[in-house]
């Protein structure tokens, strides 16, 4: 069971944490919501919860709760640029269907 980040994603996480001035790492997760059932969560973490699992990738911490891990196992977080737009992208092998915009998905 593991979660990873590309180097580009790790770099951007570092930059964001530096800019924010605090934070342990970033949280990946899922919530039941959205047009296809589940939605990704991507947040800063100031204080990990006791049951959280922590993975390290390119020196940055990826924090995830065990329930979300079931849906995200094997996911690689990437940071991409598409024209002027830039942001994080979940490469999740568990996904069977996404809604058009990719903000929500089902497994």
């Amino acid at each position: 069971m593991a979660i990873s980040m590309t180097e580009a994603a790790a770099k951007h996480v570092r930059r964001s944490l530096d800019g924010r001035g605090k934070g342990e790492g970033i949280r990946l997760g899922v919530r039941t919501t959205g047009c296809s059932g589940l939605a990704y969560v991507l947040e800063f973490v100031d204080q990990p919860d006791s049951e959280d699992l922590v993975f390290e990738s390119h020196g940055e911490k990826v924090i995830i709760d065990p329930k979300s891990l079931a849906y995200l196992d094997g996911t690689e977080l990437d940071f991409v640029k598409e024209g002027l737009n830039e942001g994080f992208k979940f490469n999740n092998p568990n996904v069977r269907g996404e809604c058009g915009c990719g903000e929500s998905f089902n497994v």
Binding site: I26, R31, G34, C35, E43, F44, G87, F88, E103
Partner: peptide
């Protein structure tokens, strides 16, 4: 696919919102 930004703790937006 929409590209995501990092949110503050507990403040992830609803999809499409």
């Amino acid at each position: 696919m929409a590209l995501l930004q990092i949110a503050e703790p507990g403040q992830s937006p609803q999809p499409h919102q």
